[in-house]
Structures are given as C-alpha cells and as structure tokens.
Design a protein around this nucleic acid. Structure first.
Lengths: 148, 148
DNA sequence: TGCAAACCGTACCTATGCGGTCCTGTTTCA
DNA sequence: TGAAACAGGACCGCATAGGTACGGTTTGCA
C-alpha cells in the first residue's frame, strides 16, 4: 500500500505542536502528549528519534523539554521520514543487497528501481513540514503543491 | 521505510518475462516460475492479480497461459502498484476516514498528506514498466547494482 | 470419450515488523 | 535532597505480508 509508519505521522503532529508553542520556551513530552492526545510513551519515543536526527533539541532536568532546531518551513519532509522510517527506498533490492533475493541470477529488474526511488525523493524534497502542518493561523498558502 | 510489497517487484519481473516471450504465444505460470526462479504458487498468485487488473490476459485449458494486453512501454508503474498494493496513499488518514484516529480532534495534519500523495503519484505516473525492465533483449545489463 | 495440463478461487498458515508499553538510569532545578 | 523530565534500553502483542495447499473448472489431444 506504499504506506509509511504511523510514527512519521505522529512526528508531524508533534513538530507542529512544538512550533505553535515556540515562544523561546520548551514543551515537555507529557505536555505534548496531552496536547496531541497521543500516549506519553509514544510521544516520548518519537521525540527521542527526532532528537537524534537533530530536528529537535532536548533539555534535561526538571525544567526540561523539547524545542525545534529549525522552523518547520525549513524542515523538509524527507528528513522526518528518513529519521523515523529509515532511508527512502521502495524495495530492499535497491540498497546494495546480495543474496537476499533468490531470483538474483534471473531477475531482470535488479537495480532498476533506482529511478523510481529518485523520483520519489525528488517529489518529497520540495515539501516541508510547514506545508503539511498547514498555515500558521492567518497565513493561507493556498495549495502549494496541489497545483500542476 | 516507505516500501512497497515484494509482489509488486515480482509483478515487474513476471511482466518483463512475458514481454520477452511475446511471440503471439502465451507463457504458462509454471513456465514463468521456472524462468524467473520464483515459486510456482507465488507466480500464479501474481498473475491472477494482474489478470484481474487487466494487465495480462489468461487463457485456460491445456494450451493455456498468460499474455500481455499492452506493451510494457504503455503500462504505467502506477497501474501495477495499484493492482498489487492497492491505491497509492501514504497514510490511512488520507482517504476520508473518520474514527480511526484517536487524536482526530486535536490532530493538526488531518488531510494534509494529500499534497504528498499527489506528489508521489505524479512522480510515478511518468514511469512505465518498460522503464524498469530497462534494455530490450540483446542489451546485457551486466551486474547493474554490483557497483558500490 | 477420457485424460492431462493449466487456470481459478479460496482458505490457511507462518513470520516479520510495527506499534505500544515499561523500567532503570541520568540530569537539572526548586 | 527530592521531584520532574529526558535517555536508552528491553519487552510484548498484534496486524499484515508472504507463501502454501486444495478442490474445482476449462480446454486440447489421443
């Protein structure tokens, strides 16, 4: 079905919330869980991944929390997907894998998915989280990608 | 990881084989299995799906088999993906689904994945199976992935 | 007319991986 | 010193993909 994981969706939700409350302060994982309606452990897990990827900054301690490192408009969707779901590739055959495919010898499409993956990456590279989060209240950016 | 099912990969392999042997004749599922190195039941399953989707024609009986309905150059990848994996959509939230998301009320990205899906569809719409199958017979695509 | 080959449809089983939770540290502030 | 929050694992259950098997129907050929 060509789906990506729910966590990617969660990440977008969480990141959006983080930007909304970006007043120089931080938001806690429990706070974000309450705000988004997601489970606390789940939100925490997402934030950890995003923190590793450098998309959010964490601050430990009693007054700790999370903060965006970049505005969402400068955060490409590909980075979030790569952080959560791993490298963007449609098939396992793509990344240099040998021996995993039993039809290796006779398979006529080995490595042929590359242009497809490239096309996908190009299509996604132009989309930022801000495009997904929609306009900050007041800013209507009418159909940025819908055109064409 | 944004992957699509193995069956889509198999479908491309099988379709490619079908075009190679397209001499007005048909290829049987067992024959295709032997030619591709895949399991007979698996190949059979793929062919059934492709048959339902109208990508291949089946002929029953002793001299039966499968045949392409269109040259691969006129067979967009999106049709194969749609046939095997279902409609191209990254998340369940996209198609008008209500009640499936527990964070529905507070989720700020509901329906926002649409531009992403559109971008993916556009990126894939220009690719045909022939583009994946690559060279017409005679062109040795020796170890296309061996590099790296 | 009977047999064999091949497609058709469905149901079933197994394994992988996602989604979700929990627990034990470590850090920081009041 | 205690409480709050992040860090980083391990762990478990469930859904779904991937693969298999079986009974039935169609068709060509001896």
């Amino acid at each position: 079905m060509l789906r990506l994981s729910k966590f990617t969706d969660y990440a977008v939700v969480v990141l959006t919330r983080l930007e909304e409350a970006e007043e120089g302060g931080v938001l806690t994982a429990p706070g974000l869980a309450a705000a988004t309606g997601l489970g606390e452990p789940t939100v925490s897990k997402v934030l950890k991944i995003l923190s590793h990827a450098g998309l959010v900054e964490s601050r430990r301690g009693a007054a700790g929390g999370y903060r965006l490192t970049r505005p969402l408009s400068q955060m490409p969707l590909t980075e979030v997907i790569a952080a959560i779901d791993g490298p963007i590739a449609l098939t396992a055959c793509v990344d240099n894998s040998f021996g995993v495919c039993d039809a290796e010898a006779t398979c006529p499409v080995r490595g042929r998915w590359d242009p497809v993956n490239d096309a996908i990456r190009r299509a996604l590279s132009g989309i930022s989280i801000a495009d997904l989060a929609g306009a900050p209240p007041g800013l209507p950016h009418a159909a940025p990608v819908a055109a064409e």
